[in-house]
Write a protein that binds this DNA or RNA. Structure first.
Lengths: 229, 229
DNA sequence: TGGGCCTTTCAGCTTTATCTCAGCCTGAGT
DNA sequence: ACTCAGGCTGAGATAAAGCTGAAAGGCCCA
C-alpha cells in the first residue's frame, strides 16, 4: 500500500511518515504543491494525505487538479483548527475525508483504514493468480483459500513483485524499495527472502510464480485473474 | 537505455551509478562540466542527470549549450536543498524535471521512468512489431503473448536495435554501447548473441526481424505498430 | 532476563550466461 | 566459377550469479 503525504511542516511530515511507515505502509512525501501534483499524476498511490495549508500551490488546487485528471485514489485532508471553511472547500474539490489538527495518529490510522476499505469496493485491492490471492489492504496472502503466513519482509517483497507483475524488477530496485536506502551488493538477503517466498507460496513447485532473470532481476509472472468483484 | 550522470561529488556519483546500473541502465559518468558538454554532444544518451552545483562550467550552462545545439534528450537536474532559484534557472535552460537533494533512489528512478516514458512518445513504453512486443520499462519481450526469455545481454542487444529501428547499427557501435569500454575487435561475441536472439525471437525464421548488412552491421527492420493507446 | 520469531550472514554448492574457438557457409568482386 | 573476407554456427570452458541450509544476531514482548 503506497501513500503520499503532502505536508509542508517538516516536523509534522516526519512524524506522519515515521508513524505510517511504521504501520507498514510505503510512504512518499513532499512539502510542495507542484511536486505533489506531479507525483500524484505520475504514480499510482493508494491514498493521499494532503495538508490544505500549503505554500505556493494550495492543497485544494492540487486536489482539484488531480480529480480533473480522473485520479481516483482516496484523499484525506488535514486542516488547522479554525479553518473549517477550507475543509468544506477541500471536500468539494474531491477529498474523501478530513481531520483537524492536532490529531492522534491512532485516529489518522483509523480513517486511512476506513478509506482504503471503502475504496476497496471500487478498486480491486485483491488480486488473484491461479490459486494465489493477495489482499493489499489486509496484507494477507492466500493460497487455495488458506492463509499463507508471511513475515512482514516476505510480504513486502511479494507485494512489490505482484504490483509490478510482468515486469522484471532488478534486485537493486527491490532492495531500494524495501529498505529505502542503498543496496549493499555483498548481501544476499533478497535471495534468501525470495527463496522463502517461493517455498511458502508454492511448496510443490508447480506454479513457479517468481521467475529469476539472471543478470536482470526477478519477475512475477502469473496471469492476473480478472475477478474484480 | 543509456544515461549520463553529471555530478561532482564522488560519493553521490558512485551511488547514482551503482543504483542506476543496478536497475539495468547503461550509465556513463563525469564530474566535470566541460566533459559533460563533450559527452552529451558526441553520444546519443537517452537521458542526462545533471547536478547544478558543478565547479568550472556550471550545470545550467551545460544544459543551455546542449539545448542550443538541439540535443533533445530529457534532462533531470539535481539541486541542493536550499537552492530554489537554481532549479528555476535550470528548468528555463531546458531541463525537464528536477529533484532536490537529498532524495531516495527510488524516487529518482521513478522520475527517470516518467521522463523516458514521456520522451518515448507519451504513451506506454511498449513497442510492438507484428507478433513481437518489447517493454522497455519492464525489460520483457513477448512473442504472440508469450514471454520470450532473454538473458541480460540478449535483451540489451535487442533493445538497442529496436530503439534504433530502421537504422543500420555497426558492430562497433553496438559493442561500444553494450560494453562501457573499448572492446576486443577480434571477438565474435556479438555475432553469437545476434544468432541466439534470432533463434529466440523467431524460431521459425518467418519474420527475420534482424537483417545483416554485410560490412556495415545489423538492422532491426519490422514495422512498428502504432498501437499508441 | 529469557524465549521466540524475524532478519541477516556465511560458506559451499549448482546453474548458466557469456565468451572463445575452430570450422563452415555465403556472397560480392574478379 | 573461384576467392576470401565477413559472417554464421555448434560445442565447450569458465567464472559469475544465484541457490541453499544452517546458524548467528536482533528485537520485541512476556
Amino acid at each position: 500500500m503506497k501513500l503520499l503525504v503532502v505536508e509542508d511542516d517538516p516536523d509534522l511530515r516526519r512524524q506522519l511518515v515515521t508513524s505510517l511507515s511504521g504501520r507498514g505502509y510505503t510512504v512518499e512525501e513532499t512539502g510542495d504543491g507542484e511536486e505533489a501534483l506531479y507525483l500524484g499524476r505520475e504514480f499510482p498511490y493508494d491514498l493521499a494525505i494532503v495538508d490544505l495549508g500549503l505554500p505556493s500551490l494550495s492543497g485544494v488546487d492540487v486536489i482539484r487538479r488531480w480529480r480533473a485528471e480522473d485520479k481516483e485514489f482516496p484523499i484525506l485532508i488535514l486542516t488547522a483548527r479554525g479553518d473549517w471553511q477550507d475543509k468544506v472547500e477541500g471536500l468539494e474539490a474531491g477529498a474523501d475525508d478530513y481531520l483537524v489538527k492536532p490529531f492522534h495518529m491512532e485516529e489518522l490510522a483509523a480513517r486511512i483504514n476506513a478509506l482504503l476499505r471503502r475504496a476497496a469496493g471500487h478498486a480491486k485491492p485483491k488480486l488473484s493468480f491461479g490459486p494465489l490471492t493477495i489482499d493489499t489492504v489486509g496484507r494477507v496472502v492466500h493460497r487455495n483459500g488458506e492463509v499463507v503466513s508471511l513475515t512482514s519482509f516476505e510480504y513486502r517483497t511479494f507485494e512489490y513483485l505482484v504490483l509490478n507483475a510482468g515486469k522484471t524488477i532488478s534486485k537493486t530496485e527491490l532492495t531500494e524499495h524495501l529498505y529505502h536506502q542503498d543496496y549493499d551488493r555483498d548481501s544476499n538477503v533478497l535471495e534468501v527472502f525470495v527463496r522463502r517466498l517461493r517455498q511458502k507460496l508454492d511448496p510443490d513447485q508447480d506454479l513457479q510464480p517468481i521467475t529469476t532473470v539472471r543478470g536482470l532481476g526477478y519477475r512475477f509472472d502469473l496471469p492476473v485473474d480478472s475477478d474484480s468483484k
